[in-house]
Design a protein around this nucleic acid. Structure first.
Lengths: 351, 351
DNA sequence: ATTAGCACTCTCTATATATGAGTGCTAATA
DNA sequence: TATTAGCACTCATATATAGAGAGTGCTAAT
């Protein structure tokens, strides 16, 4: 159970099935669910009046609400919460084969950003909502090789090839005049000394240790200076969204209140970023409904997201942003699977 | 003159000034312009009745239209066309200093994609519309250095550093087992032989020439095979859009017809791509209004765009996508200047 | 050629009314 | 005691009507 309901009494089995069916119905039709047609459509063997009584109870318990006095019922965020909980409880994470994803897409992306972009584009295309990803901080990267290249007299380009095959670059300015031949030598030296270490580890004192070594030759300290400078800045985790246009095709999203809520969330990426950072800590697929995303700024939006790993270390998160009335049943396996293929891909490359 | 008007008679001076002012007024207010208040606000020394007569003439000539019989006038696409033509005619391209742009933003971007992303993000932020860019095909890149790195037994990573400092990577699979030491040697060989040539030139027969050289040592042909394979694929020009959310804040864009038109254009990137490809050929800022973008699929949108160059060779295009009722006066210098700084930046780095 | 005057047009807003899907409540029923 | 039938009630939606206001087109006078 992701979320504990604070109820005066547990739901009866009949109430549960009504609530589940009602959320399902609303997700599919988008219209308030009225007692009569609902009983018919789902072949409940009770009368509309009884259904109304149940609905009143569910409303009192906070699962349903009425848009206006004489309308049918729609789920509250809590109602969705009930629905997705049982969805997640019953979801078999070992059966993801029914998700059709084009993995070849990823196999030739060596630039981290393009790789992640491909994933969320695919995700937004498959889900018809928006794909969102939190990229890893660069700390995780393990050095395979370092190359220094002279750009002009005072600028050196450092190319870092991570064990994953991913390439990072950084330009640093140096005061002394260097030749490319010197840089070749430094490259060899740095590659030898630093390969196998993660950027994390490197920042924690390796440079001092190397500087202290007796065998250090003249000039090597310049190499160390360059490397330290280039590696000093951590590449922050970044949040990207793709496929906003999908959300605009959903009528209920293109309404005054919802739209501004959506714009809020897209513009202030920090909100999403913080949420995704929490999801990185999480195992399995997590669903956030409406206010669970942000108390004040969000209404009508939900997120389905999961973390991804490199060799068992959770380094980022990926997911889908859509309307509260989302096809969770379809999206959950999709997100789950996406997290898996990113993890597998990154892990495979780092071994 | 970008566009020739096919008129029965030339516009009188008074008509011109009315038309100009009317478009200006409509861009600012968004409401149909009526004769009475218009005459007052712009201190025309004619009566509303005379103004109405002029308006009728301008309407007959196709510059104006009425949303309904008893409303004021709004510009047609042709009306906008007249307005922007005189705007462009009078625009002094040598005075762009009043545009405040954060150039530092760009100075440390070595990955092409991130550089361009930064530019259109800036552009969308400054204009409050959407920024769009067509990236160059990779052909233009001039090799500075090539590095081959062994990823695993059969995969080699090729890193190409262009003279601009921009880094491109490509993974290739090889059949024979290679050692990193061999690859070091190949790297040196390829860097020596290929540096100074553009990818264009390289694809046109350099490999055959090198293979024919007598001095070729055993193994070098493998190096050439790898390089030829890695460089065979041209990186296509890509179209990116940023800041769609800005467009959603504009009330007139969030309306049934306009919105779907906007989605069309964003989704079928090929439409925009083709247009931008035409703009690459162009000198100076070009403005496309409504149907000029696409006869059938677009209404209510305009584009302001310009090409950018590397050392006088036009390689891409950058611009702004917004509503027809756009603040052209503000956007034109912005786009112009953006093109300039991209050109300057890329050119500077390639010298 | 310009303008004043005036009837006319059309959107917008407000108000009234009918329709229908759906509710809550009460009393009868199994 | 739980369920159901019956019925009055509610409210969004749709339609019709009327008045106000901004603006036009046309005609006749300047």
């Amino acid at each position: 159970m992701v979320h504990k309901f604070n109820l005066e009494r547990p739901l009866e089995e009949r109430e549960e099935s009504v609530l589940g069916a009602l959320v399902y119905e609303f997700i599919n039709t988008g219209k308030p669910v009225g007692s009569r047609s609902f009983v018919q459509k789902y072949s409940f063997s009770i009368s509309p009046a009884t259904m109304r009584n149940i609905m009143v109870d569910l409303e009192n318990m906070g699962f349903l609400m009425q848009p206006h006095t004489s309308a049918g019922r729609i789920p509250t965020d809590l109602g969705y919460r009930f629905y997705v909980n049982s969805l997640l409880d019953n979801y078999d994470f070992s059966h993801r084969d029914n998700v059709q994803v084009n993995e070849d897409l990823l196999n030739n992306e060596l630039l981290l950003d393009k790789l992640f972009l491909s994933v969320i584009k695919m995700l937004s295309f498959m889900s018809k909502y928006a794909g969102i990803i939190l990229t890893p901080r660069s700390d995780f990267a393990v050095v395979k090789r370092i190359e220094l290249i002279l750009l002009d007299n005072n600028d050196v380009l450092m190319i870092l090839v991570a064990r994953t095959g991913i390439v990072m670059t950084k330009k640093v300015s140096v005061s002394s005049n260097l030749t490319q031949d010197e840089l070749y030598e430094y490259s060899r030296y740095l590659s030898t000394e630093l390969s196998g270490y993660s950027l994390n580890e490197i920042r924690e004192g390796i440079f001092d240790k190397l500087r202290a070594e007796k065998s250090i030759k003249m000039g090597k300290d310049i190499a160390l200076d360059i490397a330290e400078l280039a590696l000093s800045e951590t590449r922050e985790a970044e949040l990207s969204i793709e496929g906003i246009e999908n959300l605009l095709k959903i009528p209920e999203m293109v309404q005054e209140e919802r739209l501004s809520s959506l714009l809020n969330i897209i513009e202030e990426k920090n909100i999403l970023k913080k949420i995704m950072e929490k999801i990185v800590e999480n195992d399995g697929v997590k669903i956030l409904i409406g206010q669970e995303i942000n108390e004040t700024k969000v209404s009508g939006c939900s997120m389905v997201a999961t973390s991804y790993k490199i060799s068992n270390k959770k380094v980022g998160a990926v997911g889908v942003l859509g309307p509260t009335r989302m096809d969770y049943e379809k999206v959950v396996p999709l997100v789950d699977y996406s997290g898996k293929i990113i993890s597998d891909y990154l892990t495979k490359m780092s071994m």
